[in-house]
Computed example of a mutant assay.
Amino acid sequence: MGVIQAYESCFMEHEVRAAQILLSHEDLSDRTRYLNARSTLQTLLELGAMPVVNENDTVATAELCFGDNDTLAALVANLINADGLVILTDQEGLFTADPRVVADARLVPSAAANDPSLADMAGAVGSLGRGGMQSKLNAAKLAARSGADTVIARGRLTDVLMRLARGEELGTHLYADSEPMTAREQWLAGQLSLAGTLVLDPGAVEVLQHSGRSLLAVGIQSVSGSFFRGDVVACHDHQGVEIARGLVNYDAVEVARLCGKSSDQIESLLGYVGEEEIIHRDNLILL
């Protein structure tokens, strides 16, 4: 019996139809395909079907794949604005240290999804899956972007999903601790592959982080990557830390010519003026 046939048989016992959904990185990186995927999932849920989502491994490459099902699950949670994400694993939850090595390691019952101290508690890759506890923490951060809480629990516990649905406290509860992003912001933040990078000067970093304004050419120091108008690019500070990302209004070659220049020089340098901003504030998200 195939995997999807097993799902169908189990769900049919409860008079629920299962629907297999295979997603690739391109389905979530392209805005139109992203919206189509969201519409499909929402329609299936409205019809009472149970979507069974997996990565489309037949077309995925090492450079353009989700990497693990934890990440995929979190991005799907963003996609449908789920209330919560449950990640089942071979451990009871997140511990203060690896319980297989440290005898007095304690279970972390609850914490904020973006608590930086959690990263030090995550051990190496688990015996199941590719991600390990670190990828589950990253997934919880992704899920929190749309306001979803995450529970990490042992998958072999009896009736674990039913018990969680009844409100029983199992595993580790990582709660969303920031304002939910809009659907467009989630799409931008969830990009796994970026077309290029813009390195910004300190003044531009300050403006983006504290003034909520658009990115102008005068604040860009250098450009890397081969990208085109409408691609998603990263914005780094001079130390290489990504502070933002957004949809760029000019091709890489054009942005390179505009670096450090004022907006009123765009026409003389390029021969035309598309937009005054390299990235408009409506198409930019801070990280």
Rank of each mutant, 00 (worst) to 15 (best):
A244Q: 04
S127V: 11
R17W: 10
F11M: 13
Q221I: 02
T150P: 05
P180Y: 03
M133Y: 03
V101N: 07
L107D: 00
S214W: 14
N283S: 11
N54T: 06
L88A: 01
L44P: 04
M12V: 10
M133T: 04
V255R: 04
A6S: 03
E242L: 13
L157T: 06
E276W: 13
L79C: 09
V199P: 08
D83M: 06
P51S: 09
G225F: 14
A143T: 13
L44A: 08
A77Q: 11
L247D: 14
Y7A: 08
R38M: 02
V205K: 02
E46A: 08
I279D: 09
A204R: 02
N114E: 13
L85D: 07
L64M: 09
D282I: 12
E254Y: 15
T71Y: 09
S224P: 07
R31P: 11
D264A: 14
D159V: 14
L215Q: 09
V248D: 05
E92C: 00
G131N: 10
H280D: 14
V53I: 13
G123R: 01
A49F: 14
E267H: 14
L208Y: 03
L247C: 15
C235R: 01
Q265V: 10
L72H: 10
P51A: 07
V86F: 03
L142K: 10
A122H: 02
V102I: 05
V76N: 01
R100F: 02
V233N: 07
V160G: 01
E92N: 00
I4F: 10
S211C: 10
A244Y: 03
A111W: 05
A103M: 02
A189N: 06
L270R: 15
A176G: 09
G196L: 15
D27S: 08
G131C: 10
L88Q: 02
A144C: 10
Q221D: 03
L157Y: 06
G147Q: 09
I80V: 12
E277V: 15
E185F: 00
V86W: 08
I80S: 09
D70P: 12
L44G: 05
P180A: 05
E277P: 14
V108S: 01
